[in-house]
């Protein structure tokens, strides 16, 4: 669609200047997108904190969650982040095969996480917790929990789709290292959000 021949050779044509942030516009845009997306979660978590303090009492975590299972979920997500980082590193070294292998491992980890989350949700729903009800105390818990973990799950799903596309493109050899890096940035961001959700929902 685009004519990519540059009418001015790079020596005379100033194609972007020296960025004060030291990266190309793509990565910069990705970072700003991550900042805005992160603030979306910050908004949710602030509301959660507010409602929890406004409720006065809050259900005991141990009676609702199986913390060992949550630990397993967290382990899966952190591991998928590490495999993703390795895939990015491999791609930067030009090792396409290794990058692809670790991309697929990341996909596997992400899928496992989603399945475990689905299991956790169904356990809670079976026990009687919904968006509007909470058998263990204030209904605000159910609303906050399903809203925030649901949004995080949606982000995981989006990340998986991006990863799948990246994997196919890497297998075909049409992805640049930068493409894998940006998919990686998004994936780590999803992991980053989980760090906050894990602490604020299950531990505090």
């Amino acid at each position: 669609m685009h004519d990519r021949t540059d009418p001015h050779p790079p020596a005379t044509h100033w194609g972007g200047g020296v960025s004060p942030v030291g990266t190309g516009w793509r990565k910069l845009m990705m970072w700003w997108f991550i900042i805005t997306d992160g603030l979306l979660f910050a908004g949710f978590l602030a509301a959660y904190g507010f409602l929890r303090l406004a409720a006065g009492s809050w259900p005991e975590r141990a009676q609702m969650f199986h913390l060992e299972f949550i630990a397993l979920m967290t382990f899966t997500l952190i591991t998928s982040s590490a495999t993703m980082a390795t895939a990015v590193g491999a791609a930067q070294l030009g090792n396409r095969k290794l990058a692809l292998r670790f991309l697929l491992l990341t996909l596997l980890g992400g899928t496992a996480f989603l399945l475990m989350q689905a299991y956790e949700w169904s356990t809670l729903i079976t026990a009687g917790a919904t968006l509007t009800q909470n058998p263990w105390g204030p209904p605000a818990f159910g609303a906050c929990f399903f809203l925030i973990t649901g949004f995080h799950g949606t982000h995981v799903l989006t990340g998986l789709i991006i990863l799948a596309i990246t994997a196919v493109r890497t297998a075909r050899g049409i992805t640049q290292a930068e493409g894998i890096e940006m998919a990686g940035l998004y994936w780590h961001f999803v992991d980053l959000v989980w760090v906050f959700i894990f602490t604020l929902f299950y531990l505090v």
Binding site: W32, L39, A47, L147
Partner: peptide, 14 residues
């Protein structure tokens, strides 16, 4: 705009 709109999105979802 980039910094301030996301919390409103969160509020709108709620």
């Amino acid at each position: 705009g980039l910094l301030a709109f996301p919390p409103l999105t969160a509020a709108a979802v709620m």
